[in-house]
Write a protein that binds this DNA or RNA. Structure first.
Lengths: 204, 204
DNA sequence: TTTTGACCATTCAATTAAAAAAGTCAGAAG
DNA sequence: CTTCTGACTTTTTTAATTGAATGGTCAAAA
């Protein structure tokens, strides 16, 4: 059993390289098998189909990513600093894995397998909870008002996601491959402004 | 001259009906000409090409829409009320004209003609200015802090747009035709929360 | 000045065939 | 028994073809 798990790990590791560079549609099961010096049939011994493999790869990098985001929040001195750290973690992730389109919405491919959408939603929920816990702590500490942490976390995440996806489209067009530093920084700047706005409010 | 303008107006009026129902790609110049009981060649006497006609139609409804949004802000008692009124105006517009995809970003078609993108950007700028003026007035009146109205307006618009487009994708999938009341209301609720969040802030 | 039928050029949609990729399986290898 | 594979089938992409539909033009008529 642990032997099989080790093998699966290796496959996931190699597959990740392909997926993160070429995306799911442009990497074939043969590519991955060749990289591993095994036959394609062997690959299918460990994974029932391509989507399942991709899904495990995605789960793998996402759980790591969620850990990073959580830590980036925990290590912060203030709410704006924490949120910006989290955003920076996300942007770094986007830069590294944007070819996998996990966070994006525009990719029709994801609508072909319900599990992808479920994963996306699950990630979203976990992110919300991470932010919610962070806010709860900061409420207890007296940094924040006695707001509804769950609701606020959801809204903040909605805003962050919306800004990111939207800006991406505006700057790079619908099916662009590149994800330049410029675009990343533009998103970062916008979100920074948003965080400040939400933090201090505008009411006199 | 005024005779020609009257004719153009009529064409725009009839074309709008087609465009708003079927979208730009599914309405042909023959459809429009037939509706008007003129030949296609006549249509081309008034408009050099299809995109130009569409563009004028879009400009026509957008200028009216911008007026509505401005008024919805002016007639409000408070900032949150004003912004929500504006959002309601936008959602009503989206319901009526979503087939024309003017506000959306996901449509590849729009990237075929630079003028569409320019119009989109111009609309965006005008919206920003409308919001900016609204905020400026409310700052003067003492309802709001002495914030940077221009910057704040831009950010708010960014947020609104992002939430809308994003929620649309989440709820209806990439190429959906329908724009249900449910989705509209879900967007509305989210944005309402955002406005409250920004208005009051979360800092203690 | 405005309109139009006839026309051209380009795009779109349906068809098909070939190639590539996904996925299967009986049996070999350890 | 677990793992692996070559050979195989099925499904999906891709490319080429073609006819129809559509965007766009123009000389001539009203």
């Amino acid at each position: 059993m642990t032997e099989q798990d080790g093998k699966k790990e290796k496959i996931i590791e190699v597959a990740l390289k392909r997926f993160s560079h070429f995306g799911i549609e442009k990497t074939t099961m043969n590519d991955i098998a060749d990289d591993l010096n095994i036959s394609k049939a062997s690959l299918y011994y460990y994974f029932p189909d391509k989507n399942s493999l991709f899904l495990e790869v995605a789960v793998s990098i996402m759980s790591e990513q969620l850990d990073k985001q959580q830590k980036s929040l925990e290590n912060a001195e203030s709410v704006p600093e924490g949120l910006m750290n989290m955003i920076d973690a996300r942007l770094a992730f986007a830069e590294q894995f944007h070819m996998m389109k996990i966070q994006d919405l525009q990719i029709d491919y994801f609508y072909k397998d319900k599990r992808f959408l479920e994963l996306r939603d699950k990630i979203r929920e976990k992110e919300n909870i991470i932010i919610e816990n962070f806010l709860d702590i900061r409420i207890e500490k007296g940094e924040l008002k006695e707001i509804d942490a769950e609701k606020t976390a959801t809204i903040l995440n909605d805003i962050f996601m919306g800004i990111g996806v939207n800006r991406l489209h505006f700057c790079t067009g619908p099916n662009s491959l590149e994800l330049s530093k410029e675009v990343i920084n533009s998103i970062r700047d916008s979100i920074k402004d948003v965080i400040n706005l939400v933090y201090y409010g505008i009411k006199n």
